[in-house]
Write a protein that binds this DNA or RNA. Structure first.
Lengths: 340, 340
DNA sequence: CTGAAAGCGCTTACAG
DNA sequence: CTGAAAGCGCTTACAG
C-alpha cells in the first residue's frame, strides 16, 4: 500500500542510494537526477519509514513522558509546555499515565525503552531506589520535571518549594495575620509536601510566632474534597484562625467551599492562599490569591534540558530551580494590626 | 551499550533464530535451550528493539493523538480515557498539540505517519476537505473523538449535542424559567456550537416560547473570560433574564463571575446551567448544574474503536453517540410558575 | 528442535 | 555524480 524507497527508485529509474541521497544530502545529487527523484516522491506520495531510519541512526526523535495523572490540571499544563518544546526541537512525546502505580510506571518505562525513546521526562513522585536502579539499567537520558532527587544526580527542573512556601506564609503575616493554619500534602511526600511544611514553619519562627505543627497543620491529598475535609478539621482544632495556606489550588478551593458552607466569608472572615496558580484559581469566587509556579515553563525547560543531555551527554546545571511568585487576587484580606 | 540479540545468542551459545524463538514461540524451543537463553537475556538485561520488530510486523503498537490544547481540561480528561484504553490494549500514545493550527496539524500527522503509527485519534475540530484528502493519502485508520463528520464516513464517538442542549434548555423550562438566554460557541463551529444552538432553539419552540436568536444568544470562545464578556452583553440586551444556558462549563463560570460582580446572586437572581461536567464544575460556588458528557469514556471508547478498526479493518458502528445526563447541583433555581 | 539465509526499509562508506 | 553491498536488529520460512 504505502510506497517505499524501492518504488521511488524504480519510478525514477535510479538506485535506492540515489533516492536516499536526495533526501539526506540533496546537493550531492545532480540537479536533473534530483528533480526526477523528487517528482517520483511526489507522485507516489512517498514518506520515509522512520523505523528504518531510527534503526540506523539509533535515534528516534521520540521522548517518553511519565505522568501520574494526565487529567490533573497541574500535569496537563506542564505537559503543554513539554509538547511545545518537543515540537520546537522536532521531538514527539509518548505519553504514559502511571496512576501513581510503581509497577505500571516500571512497565511503561520498559516498553518506552524498547521503543527506543531518545530520552525521558519523569514528573513528580520521589525517586525510589528501585526507580534509580531501573534508570541505570535502562541507560536512558532522564530529566525530572516538578520533582528532583537529592540522593541521586539526576537533572531536574522545579520550583524551590520551601522558599515558595515561606513566601506565601510571610505574605499572610505581612497582611496582618497572626493565626495561620496550613493544609498540607501527605507528610510522607518528601519532594513537595515536606519542604512546603518546612517553609511554612520557618516563616512562623522567623516572625516569632507559634509554630506548633499539631495545632496548625492538617494533612491530606491534593483534591478538592481533601481540602474541604482538611479545612473542616483545621477549623475545629483552631477556631480563631484568620488565614490558611492551602498548599495546592484545588485544596484551597475545597477549603473555600467548606468555609462558604459554614457561613464564613473569604476573605472577610478567613483569608486563603493557594499554591500552583492553576487556571482554575482565576475562576473561583473570590479569585484565588496563590503562589504561582510556572508549570508550562517547567515543562518547556525540562524538555530543553533533556535535549541538551541527549545531544551533549551532559547538562549545564544539574538542578534548576525556577522562580515562583505571589499572585495577588482576592482571597487574602489585609488585617489591621490592632485587631491582632 | 545496550545488548542486542547477537549478544544474547553469543552468551547462550545458540543462534539468533533460537533467541528470537524463545521470545516469540517459546514452546517450540527445548526447555534446556530455552532456560539457557532466558538466563542470557536476564544477565545481559536484554530488551528487544521495537523498531526492528515494527519494521517486520508493520505494526508499532503506537497510536497518534491530535489534540488542539492539552492544557484544556476538556481534552485532558478525554486523553486520560484514551490512555487507559491504550494501556489496556497494549498501545502507546504519541501526543501532538495542534494549537488549532491547520498547518501544524497536517505536519504532525505526516511525522506520525512516518513513525508508522497504527492508527490515529483526532479530536474536536471539523473535518475540512483538505484534512480528509490527507487522511486518504496517508491511509491511516482514524477515529474521531468528541467530533464527527457528516460529509465523510469516518468512525466517531461523541455525545448528541443537539439533544443534550435541548435537554439542558428543557430542564430550565421545567424549573419554571421563561426568560432564558444562551452563551454559545462560535456560530462557524458546525460540529459543536451549531447543534447546541439548534437544540436550544428547538426546546424553546416546542414549549411555545419566543426563539429570537438575536435577542437570546451571545457567541464567543470557550474560555472563562469569553463567558464573562458574553454574560455582560447578554444581560445588557436582555435584562429580565432568569436563566442562562452556557454551552461549556468554563463559560458558565465566567458568566457566574460576571453576575457575582454585578451583585446578582446565582441561582437566586439568575440560574446558570453549564455543559461538559468538567471537574471544576464541582469546585465553584455555587456548584455548577451542568449537562455532563462522559469525556473519559469518549476517549476510552474512541481508542477501543480504533483498535477494532485496526484489527478487523472495519467498525461495528460508524458514528457512536454516547449518553449525556443532567447533573443537578446548585446553580439552577426552581421558580414558582406564578412568577412567570 | 535448531541454524543459515533472506528480508523489513532504510543509510553510508566504498568503488568507479 | 551514481550504484552495489553491507549493515541497523529483528523474524520467519526453509532445510536439516
Amino acid at each position: 500500500m504505502s510506497s517505499n524507497i524501492k518504488d521511488v527508485a524504480r519510478h525514477a529509474a535510479v538506485s535506492i542510494s540515489t533516492v536516499s541521497r536526495v533526501m539526506n544530502m540533496p546537493d550531492k545529487v545532480a540537479k536533473e537526477t534530483r528533480d526526477k527523484v523528487l517528482n517520483a516522491i511526489r507522485e507516489l506520495n512517498y514518506m520515509p519509514n522512520a523505523l528504518a531510519r531510527g534503526l540506523i541512526f539509533k535515534r528516534t526523535k521520540s521522548l517518553g513522558v511519565l505522568i501520574p495523572d494526565i487529567s490533573n490540571m497541574f500535569y496537563s499544563e506542564m505537559l503543554h509546555g513539554m509538547e511545545a518544546a518537543a515540537h520546537d526541537q522536532n521531538y514527539n512525546l509518548i505519553l504514559c499515565n502511571t496512576d501513581n502505580n510503581k509497577t505500571r510506571m516500571m512497565e511503561s518505562l520498559s516498553v518506552l525503552k524498547e521503543k527506543q525513546i531518545d530520552g525521558l521526562i519523569f514528573t513528580s513522585e520521589p525517586i525510589y531506589p528501585d526507580y534509580h536502579e531501573l534508570f541505570l539499567k535502562l541507560q536512558i537520558p532522564i530529566v525530572l520535571a516538578a520533582t528532583h532527587s537529592l540522593e541521586y544526580d539526576l537533572p531536574s527542573v522545579k520550583v524551590n518549594d520551601e522558599q515558595a512556601s515561606y513566601d506565601a506564609t510571610e505574605y499572610l503575616i505581612k497582611n496582618g495575620h497572626r493565626q495561620i493554619g496550613m493544609i498540607c500534602g501527605s507528610i510522607t511526600d518528601q519532594v513537595t509536601a515536606m519542604p512546603r511544611l518546612q517553609g511554612f514553619l520557618r516563616a512562623l519562627k522567623v516572625h516569632q510566632m507559634e509554630a506548633d505543627m499539631e495545632k496548625l497543620v492538617e494533612f491530606g491529598s491534593y483534591k478538592f474534597e481533601d481540602g474541604y475535609h482538611a479545612m473542616h478539621k483545621l477549623l475545629e482544632k483552631y477556631p480563631d484562625i484568620t488565614a490558611v495556606f492551602a498548599a495546592g489550588d484545588e485544596r484551597a478551593l475545597g477549603a473555600i467551599s467548606y468555609l462558604h458552607e459554614k457561613g464564613k466569608s473569604v476573605p472577610e472572615d478567613i483569608s486563603v492562599i493557594g499554591f500552583d496558580n492553576l487556571r482554575l484559581s482565576q475562576m473561583s469566587i473570590p479569585k484565588l490569591t496563590t503562589v504561582g509556579q510556572p508549570l508550562y515553563e517547567i515543562g518547556y525547560l525540562a524538555v530543553e534540558k533533556l535535549d541538551h543531555l541527549i545531544q551533549k551527554e551532559h547538562v549545564p546545571e544539574l538542578r534548576t530551580y525556577v522562580d515562583h511568585q505571589i499572585v495577588e487576587r482576592q482571597s487574602v484580606k489585609m488585617r489591621n494590626h490592632e485587631s491582632v
